[in-house]
Design a binder for these strands. Structure first.
Lengths: 212, 212
DNA sequence: TCTAAAAATAAACACCGTTTAGTAATTTTG
DNA sequence: CAAAATTACTAAACGGTGTTTATTTTTAGA
């Protein structure tokens, strides 16, 4: 009676195929190109079929979301080798920026677009495990920094928030090309990279000053 | 021969009416509700008529964009009364956050949505005068802070960028409800407000430490 | 008043997410 | 093995979007 097992396997495979297709469309041609019809065409099924595997488009986007968070967390994992918490914190900033700049699409999906947020607002908790975990890594590191005598007198939660806000603002502005207009150069990508790099350096200087 | 003058006046009035309608729809019912058909219905004209006054939808959004930047700059104008540059800088943070939280829709239009950006990438410069002016106010203030002995050894442009990035990250995360998931409280709006307020306080503390 | 220009529109085109009703394939049952 | 039942799939439609084209209505000037 391997029929049931096979059917379940096929169901999972189809789900994966849909998600893979959606991600490919998203990364290759932008958020707007994730259309049910485009996905359907890519996997060579009718649009209606997709609704047998996902409740609606939001559910697809949310699944991609989870994958994105897992990717972010994976960027943080190698940082355990840095035993000094402050050093690890700085490396986390690097890892975060690297994640955002090498995966601008994924970053946009995770932190810029608001559509999935609204969806998540409904089916609370548990869906955001991955996101919470990412923040928790930061929080723990900041906490350890404080235990080592850094950032005296600052609330851990708020300081973590501040650091994340800064890095997010940097990445978000960079990715959305809001920075390019400040400078007059032509090649936007280079400008963004340069500004982000040097701004981040400034951030590091500021953090250094706050160490003791 | 006042006919030509009247026609020109009517042309401008119609343009304004379209923009006013678009802004109303946007602020009242969100970005998605800015549809050519909705605008047309609101001003009691056919959808096609709108294309006699605007090249496409992007041109409408971009016009709203400019208005948004003018509103932001207007939030900064009262700050000239603060003669101490550092005090003015802090007040600018307050003004920016106030702008973002009291006009989340406008803020989203200006700094979160990317659609208008792409449009702007084509018709470079001149369209962004207002945006540049807003950043310039910040830059000048930071520069004056440094002339008063604050923020020693930090590049002005980058430090300005850092400050903007931080505040933007805070507002952006707050508005997009990315913060709410960190805490487990139910009333998101309150949580966002609280976290933003206290985080901002932390930021102020950090800035204070950097004064000398 | 008649004509030429300008302004507005109806209708269509090609998309979108989603639903419904019906077909085709597959599995289970008699 | 054939019939019934279940499952998998899809064609077509609904109401929405931005935009274009051909046509009609309104207006202005001779």
């Amino acid at each position: 009676m391997g029929v049931k097992e096979r059917k379940e396997r096929e169901k999972v495979e189809m789900r994966d195929k849909i998600l893979q297709s959606a991600q490919h469309l998203f990364l290759a041609r932008g958020f707007d190109q994730i259309s049910i019809r485009n996905i359907a065409e890519a996997i060579e099924y009718s649009p209606a079929t997709i609704y047998l595997y996902f409740k609606d488009k939001n559910e697809i986007v949310h699944a991609l979301h989870q994958d994105g968070f897992r990717l972010l967390v994976r960027h943080f994992e190698p940082l355990v080798k840095f035993t000094d918490p402050f050093e690890r914190l700085i490396e986390m900033g690097n890892a975060y920026i690297k994640f955002a700049t090498t995966n601008p699409g994924v970053y946009e999906l995770l932190f810029v677009r608001t559509e999935p947020m609204e969806y998540v607002s409904n089916c609370l908790d548990e869906e955001w495990k991955e996101g919470d975990r990412a923040f928790d890594v930061l929080f723990q590191t900041v906490s350890q920094c404080q235990q080592s005598g850094h950032f005296k007198g600052l609330d851990t939660q708020n300081l973590s928030m501040m650091i994340w806000s800064f890095i997010h603002g940097l990445c978000s502005l960079g990715i959305s090309n809001h920075i390019a207009h400040v400078k007059e150069a032509r090649d936007k990508k280079l400008v963004v990279d340069a500004v982000m790099a040097s701004t981040y350096q400034t951030f590091q200087t500021v953090m250094e000053r706050l160490k003791s």
